[in-house]
Amino acid sequence: MKEIKTLIQEAEIYQSQGLLQDALRQYISASKILLKKEQSEKKNMLMRSITKKIHQLEQSLYNNQQDLKTPKLSKKSQDLVKNLSSYSKKLGKDEALLEGAMSLAKLGQYKSAITEFNKLLTNKKLCVHAAKNIIRNFIALSKPEMAVKHYKRWIEKKRFQNRQFENIRLFLESNLKNKGFEKLLSSHNDTIPEKPPTSNNQPIDDEPEEPLDIISIGIILENRSKEETLELDVNFQSGNNINVILTSNDHKLVEHYSVGYKIPQIRFFLVNALFIGQGIVSSFSKITLGPKIDNYSLDFEIID
């Protein structure tokens, strides 16, 4: 009985420390030892008590899992997430703002992310990138009409140069099509103006080169008897860094991926082209917040 008493005492302390799994293990060990003891009223009472504790712990562990489905972040918390990027000396103010907005978006805080991306529309270098991310966030919110509305507003305000408009329009069209919002494309001329009302065809001398917009990817799965591809939509893109979201079923196909893993063959689908390359995994984790909870977030860098 002394051994059982010790195990129960340890279990109680582990439980008080929040180490529920460890506590559960001790209670189960105690119950196994108790089972081998001769029948007695004392044994039965103790067994009932231990069984109750095990049940409570299992319930707490289950509840903890459910607690993770708490998607709401307070304004203060969102501000902190945003500012986490501002510590890097390597990033300028706007680049830090961009990283912060991307972090918010990755946590599913799309509305706040849109507010941040809007602030970057005046930055010559980052404006197109910000505009595309605004579109992506509205589509992630299942509000494609808002993406179109914003695009129209940018045209009214002559926010971009013609070439930039063309770039954003193609991006918007491809994303709408890719996410199944073809209806918005059916009345194409009315909905998505192709050209801004005032033409400005002046070349932009210092316009930075825009990265290729990847709409979706196809990871060619390794060690298969015949070619199998995991098709995924791009959630976010920042230059050569791509973020995709995987369901738990998708995850099973690539669960061996870890940080630094080289993905040997990926098809990159652009607005109007396709290229094949490789990627290095920079992050791969389960999403525990926001609307994409319980899915997996995979970040990788295109290396070839």
Binding site: S60, D67, T70, L80, L289
Partner: peptide, 9 residues
Amino acid sequence: TDGDRTLFF
């Protein structure tokens, strides 16, 4: 979380 585990920081 309600279980006092740090969810973010």
